[in-house]
Write a protein that binds this DNA or RNA. Structure first.
Lengths: 257, 257
DNA sequence: AGGTTTTCTCAGGGAAATCACAGGTTCGCG
DNA sequence: CGCGAACCTGTGATTTCCCTGAGAAAACCT
């Protein structure tokens, strides 16, 4: 399989001018992702976010279209809503699998339909997220799926490093200067977003859009609050790495000592 | 006969980018497995899981197809349901054996089925699991069959080690710091899954999908329960190795002393 | 059949995480 | 130097998630 898949994805990484690492196919062309959901607002939201990752996106609104698109688009990964109008999710999956047996799938499921037989979906190395999701979560899981389906050194790939701060996306471990730091789920996602965009100012609106679920209706100052939490854990008593740009947002960068 | 098999499989192991050990054929190509079952949901489930192991899979839905596939696909192992629509399991087996005399077979049987007849069949080094099975079990037994049919050092292959914790897949022996630990079947499979993915956060859904039978319809908190059991036996009074990542899952890693 | 082990459900307790709110602090700018 | 806007953070309510004891049911073993 290894050798076979090398020909298919064999994603390699390169570092973009912005300093973000990207997944690329062996020939240097962008990774392709097919998004399948009947709600257009969702496909648009996802398409935007995933394009921002530098990936090439095609979307479909039903099972028929999904199978058709899969056949000609030949994506490297698929995002598949389990609730489609024309066929049930599992039969779509079956047909997709017949077209592209090795492509990893990220399932979208309703939170309340949790017991709605998600059984077996993650068994083959696939993954799922529940609606409403945060974009960071979807992107992170997709990256994981694509990474694992290809021939990339996972260790270097799953590890984000900014200065003496490291974040491992697989073990969820965070260290600064060698010391382990415990973060909650939300803190972890916020830090991951910051670290995936080092030295770049991210507005509170951007952060809210990426790190919190798309249906979050709360106060905008949660971002401030969580930045505060992060500082307490990461910058406590050290050279600060998280900086405020008043009126603009926040950014993370290596401490200049 | 041994030497004959060496020529056929002579599996070697290599460590994949993920850090998991994989079985490979001598020429470096992936191991091939033929899956034979009339229920398509079963073949798909198995194909997904076995592909994830890095193996190359072909499936057939009846005896005819099985024999045909075996002839051209020349698998290194076969998963064979004993209840097929067109022929009875034994004659399928006979024909497969005529094509590929040395290929090990993993039988799938109904729980209540004739244990004695199967027992006779497995005398030749084959093995069987009863439906409904867990994927961990199928994968483990297949790995065992393939390993034993080839020329691989069994000892190094069947022993999982994480820190001072060891788990022998052949003898089912588990030790921590040299002390033997008795585990029930479910506890053993859970621990094996954790240990085959050390330092990696595994969600409760992933664990359910791999360790419990595919038809398990119960409460998702069995996972919590069995984690609790495992901790009592493995971490009791020592530096804990099983960790909870709230909102994400569980992971095992060597105790940092 | 009777005892033992294993698996699993259920429910309560408790800890952790999330978030709203509000008062305090800092910064930029006139 | 003083004001307002933007930001920071302590407190505590609420929710979510996890752990585990108790016991029923099933499997297993004589």
């Amino acid at each position: 399989m290894l050798s076979e898949r090398v020909g298919i994805v064999a994603a390699m990484t390169t570092t973009s001018p912005q300093g973000r690492t990207e997944l690329l196919r062996p020939d240097g062309s962008p990774v392709r992702v097919l998004v399948v959901d009947d709600e257009q607002s969702i496909t648009e939201l996802l398409s935007m976010a995933l394009r921002y990752e530098g990936w090439q996106i095609r979307s479909a609104g039903d099972g028929q279209g999904a199978v058709r698109s899969a056949r000609e688009f030949r994506p490297d990964a698929i995002v598949l809503d389990m609730m489609l109008p024309d066929m049930d999710g599992l039969s779509v999956l079956g047909r997709l699998r017949r077209e592209l047996p090795d492509v990893p799938v990220l399932f979208l499921t309703a939170k309340d339909a949790v017991e709605d037989r998600i059984a077996g979906l993650t068994a083959g190395g696939d993954d799922y997220v529940t609606k409403p999701f945060s974009l960071e979560e979807v992107v992170a899981r997709l990256r994981g799926l694509i990474r694992r389906s290809g021939a990339v050194d996972r260790r270097s790939e799953s590890l984000l490093v900014v200065g003496d701060l490291t974040l491992d996306e697989d073990s969820h471990e965070v260290t600064r200067g060698g010391d382990g730091i415990h973060l909650t789920a939300t803190e972890f996602e916020l830090l991951r977003f910051l670290m995936r965009n080092p030295r770049r100012v991210l507005s509170k609106a951007q952060i809210l859009d990426r790190v919190w679920s798309y249906d979050f209706g709360g106060q905008a100052n949660v971002v401030e609050l969580y930045i505060s939490y992060l500082r307490r854990k990461i910058d406590a008593g050290r050279e600060p790495m998280i900086h405020t740009r008043r009126g603009a947002g926040y950014l993370i960068k290596p401490a200049v000592v």
